[in-house]
């Protein structure tokens, strides 16, 4: 079992001086994930908060090989890097014993939305890489536009609440399930508040034979509108309300990694963030009810899948 004390003494692959917001969840996620392999690593990063805030020329916060090419193609870009690695290995231009890990990274905009096709293609082709989506439910880099990961009822600048609108009227796309449907060896959902779980999942993903996908809940005080010191508490609440279940699917078998002793009502989650504030108006009460129903249904479904998976 990894100890934080040991992890803290490893070299940072993402370093200080990046420009991410106060209380941002992204560095917390990658602090752990980038320590989950000791092999040399090459990262392809989609356009987004992480990319922009780490590479404002002439500075870079990356202490690791890194490439950004566009918004929708982190998966195909890293696939290209991986293909060249295989080619040069086959041709004997890279020593046979040299191992390199490949990591594609994007936010929910670059992954659920504009980059979904490239991601689907790259995992279908079986490139050896890990893809991490840091899902903060919104296009945060550009000021809070809706994505297909924005939850029902959240107010986003392109799905704003108003006198005639309760905010986003569609639910979230279930990206982890879409990735499971690709029959890849490893898919997991994680959250920064359970670092050991996140670390283990990243390690499994790096060690998987074939593509692996991690969907990680990413705190965003700027767009979720909460006191930035409370982020980890919020992540805990997301798991306790089952809004963000922590689970993994290893070779098709589901395992829930965290079951709240007492499932908390989604109300607590919604109350905690300004993006849901308008839901507490009388006319929007149905939305809160619907959110609870959706969460219950999805949790029930996940529980059953885990049960089925546990059968011999």
């Amino acid at each position: 079992m990894a100890k934080l004390k040991d992890l803290a003494q490893m070299e940072d692959r993402l370093v200080a001086g990046h420009g991410m917001c106060l209380g941002c969840g992204i560095p917390l996620i990658f602090k752990i994930i980038l320590r989950a392999t000791e092999d040399p690593l090459i990262i392809a990063n989609a356009t987004g908060c992480l990319e922009v805030c780490t590479t404002i020329f002439p500075r870079t916060a990356w202490n690791v090989s890194w490439i950004h090419s566009a918004f929708e193609n982190a998966a195909s870009t890293i696939a290209g890097v991986e293909a060249m690695y295989k080619a040069l290995k086959n041709k004997g231009k890279i020593p046979a014993d040299k191992k390199i890990k490949f990591l594609g990274v994007g936010g929910d905009g670059g992954t659920y939305d504009i980059g979904l096709q490239a991601l689907s293609g790259a995992v279908e082709r079986g490139h050896e890489f890990v893809y991490v989506c840091y899902d903060n439910n919104v296009y945060a880099n550009t000021g809070g536009q809706r994505s297909s990961a924005t939850p029902l009822g959240a107010s986003a600048t392109t799905a704003p609440s108003g006198s005639k609108s309760p905010g986003k009227i569609q639910g979230r796309k279930d990206l982890a399930q879409i990735m499971v449907a690709h029959k890849i060896p490893y898919v997991a959902q994680a959250s920064p508040h359970r670092w050991q779980d996140l670390y283990n999942k990243a390690k499994k993903a790096f060690e998987a034979v074939g593509p692996a996908f991690l969907n990680v809940l990413c705190l965003c005080p700027t767009e979720w509108k909460y006191d930035e010191s409370k982020g980890i508490k919020l992540a805990q609440l997301a798991a306790d309300t089952c809004v963000w279940p922590l689970y993994e699917v290893e070779n098709g078998r589901y395992k829930i990694n965290y079951k709240p002793k007492q499932k908390k009502p989604v109300l607590e989650w919604l109350e905690s963030q300004g993006r849901f504030r308008h839901l507490f108006k009388e006319e929007n009460a149905w939305i809160i009810e619907k959110i609870q129903q959706d969460v219950d249904r999805d949790w029930e479904w996940l529980t059953r899948l885990a049960e089925i998976s546990s059968r011999p």
Partner: peptide
């Protein structure tokens, strides 16, 4: 790949990788 956009993206990744 699954599109020309990805084909060129793969080319870019591969070329930056060094070949």
């Amino acid at each position: 790949p699954e599109s020309e956009h990805s084909a060129m993206s793969v080319c870019i990744g591969a070329a930056a990788a060094g070949g």
